[in-house]
C-alpha cells in the first residue's frame, strides 16, 4: 500500500516512518505541508492508496487538504486518516465532513495506528476491485444489493466505513446523538428490476429526502447496503426523534421513480431509530446505529410478511424502540 503522510513536524514524520515500516508499510512518501502534499500528489507517476494528514499546519490545514484531495476524481474514495492532536468534537466533525475516512489522535499508539491502517488497506483493496470492474463495464455497474456505495452529491454523505469510524472515534461525552436507518422495504424487487444507474438514483433520492428534512441540523448520512440509508444526527436540532421520522416518512414514502425499462415503481420505506442522548461510550454508539438498522429491517420484514399473510410463520421481531409499536399500532404510512 503506497502511503502519503503529511505533517509539519519532522519528528512525527520520523515516528510515522518507523511505526509504518514495522507494520510492513514501507512504501511511504512524506510532505511537510499541505501545499507540498498537493505538489507531490500532482507530480507522482504512481498513485497513492492511503493518506495520513495532520490537521493543524501552517498555511492550508489538513481539513482543507482533505477537501482538495477528495476533489481529485482518482482519490474520491481513497482512505484518508487524520492523525491529529486536536481532540474536540468540532475538529472531528470538520474532518469527516471534508471527507476523512478515519481519525487517530496524537500521541498515537503504534498498535492502534496499525489496526486503522489495516482497515484502510482492506477498504483500498475493495475500492480498487470495484474501480477495475467499473472500467470494464459499459455503464454504471449494478452494485450487489448488500454492497454499500457512496452517495452522490448528498450533503454530509460519508461512506459506511467512515460513519462507523466517526462513531468510534468522536470524543466520548459529546452531546447527544440520534441514530436512524431508512429502509427501502421493496429493495430486493427494485434492485432486481434496476440498472446500475436506476438503483443509484433510487438510493440517492431517498438520501436527498432525508437531507431535505435535516437541513440546518448536524448530521452524517451513509448508504449501508441492502436498501438501508443510515444517518446520525449529532449536536443540536430543533426536531425531536419522532418529528424527524414523521417528516421523512411524509416526504419520502410513496416516491415514484421511472426505471430505464420505462416501468414506474413506488418506493416503500420505513424508518427505524435509536436515541442515545445519554450514551457516552464509543461502543454504545455503534450498537445504537445497529439497533436503528435492525429496527428498520425488522419493521420492513414484518410489513412484507403481513402483506404475504405470513405473520404467523415469521413472527414479528421484538424491538426495544417505540417506533415498532407505533408503526404497527396504526401510524405506518
Amino acid at each position: 500500500m503506497r502511503i502519503l503522510a503529511v505533517d509539519d513536524d519532522p519528528i512525527i514524520l520520523d515516528l510515522l516512518r518507523t511505526v509504518l515500516s514495522e507494520a510492513g508499510y514501507t512504501d511511504l512518501a512524506t510532505a511537510s505541508s499541505a501545499e507540498e502534499a498537493v505538489s507531490v500528489i500532482e507530480r507522482t507517476d504512481r498513485g497513492f492508496d492511503c493518506f495520513l494528514f495532520d490537521i493543524m499546519m501552517p498555511g492550508i490545514d489538513g481539513v482543507a487538504l482533505t477537501g482538495a484531495v477528495r476533489a481529485m476524481p482518482q482519490y474520491a474514495q481513497t482512505p484518508i486518516l487524520m492523525v491529529s492532536r486536536l481532540d474536540d468534537k468540532h475538529h472531528f466533525d470538520r474532518a469527516f465532513a471534508a471527507g476523512a475516512s478515519d481519525y487517530v489522535t496524537k500521541p498515537f499508539e503504534p498498535t492502534e495506528l496499525k489496526v486503522r491502517l489495516g482497515l484502510a488497506e482492506q477498504v483500498s483493496r475493495q475500492q480498487k476491485a470495484l474501480a477495475a470492474a467499473a472500467v470494464d463495464a459499459p455503464q454504471t455497474p449494478l452494485p450487489r444489493l448488500a454492497e454499500p456505495f457512496q452517495l452522490d452529491d448528498v450533503p454530509y454523505a460519508i461512506n459506511n466505513h467512515a460513519l462507523e469510524s466517526y462513531l468510534q472515534s468522536v470524543p466520548v461525552g459529546s452531546s447527544g446523538m440520534l441514530f436512524f436507518a431508512l429502509k427501502l422495504v421493496n429493495a430486493s424487487e427494485l434492485h432486481r428490476k434496476s440498472t446500475g444507474d436506476d438503483y443509484h438514483f433510487i438510493i440517492n433520492s431517498l438520501a436527498d429526502a432525508v437531507t431535505d428534512v435535516l437541513s440546518g441540523a448536524n448530521y452524517f448520512i451513509s448508504h449501508a447496503g441492502n436498501g438501508v440509508v443510515s444517518f446520525v444526527v449529532h449536536g443540536g436540532t430543533d426536531m425531536t426523534e419522532e418529528e424527524i421520522i414523521h417528516s421523512i416518512m411524509s416526504d419520502a414514502s410513496g416516491l415514484d421513480v421511472t426505471l430505464a425499462s420505462g416501468e414506474e415503481v413506488v418506493l416503500d420505506i420505513v424508518v427505524g431509530s435509536s436515541s442515545a442522548s445519554r450514551i457516552t461510550s464509543r461502543g454504545a454508539r455503534i450498537e445504537a446505529m445497529r439497533e436503528a438498522v435492525l429496527s428498520a429491517e425488522g419493521i420492513a420484514e414484518a410489513m412484507v410478511a403481513r402483506e404475504l399473510g405470513l405473520a404467523a410463520v415469521h413472527p414479528m421481531p421484538k424491538r426495544s424502540g417505540g417506533l415498532f409499536d407505533r408503526l404497527f399500532g396504526g401510524i405506518a404510512a
Binding site: 509539519d8 513536524d9 519528528i11 515516528l15 493543524m56 501552517p58 492532536r85 496524537k106 500521541p107 498515537f108
Partner: peptide, 20 residues
C-alpha cells in the same frame, strides 16, 4: 500554539507523557 501543539502531538509517543 503552533509550537505547543507540535510538542503535544509527539511528546507522549516518545516517553514524555507529562510534557505531552
Amino acid at each position: 500554539r503552533l509550537r505547543v501543539h507540535r510538542i503535544a502531538g509527539v511528546a507522549g509517543s516518545l516517553g514524555f507523557a507529562a510534557l505531552g
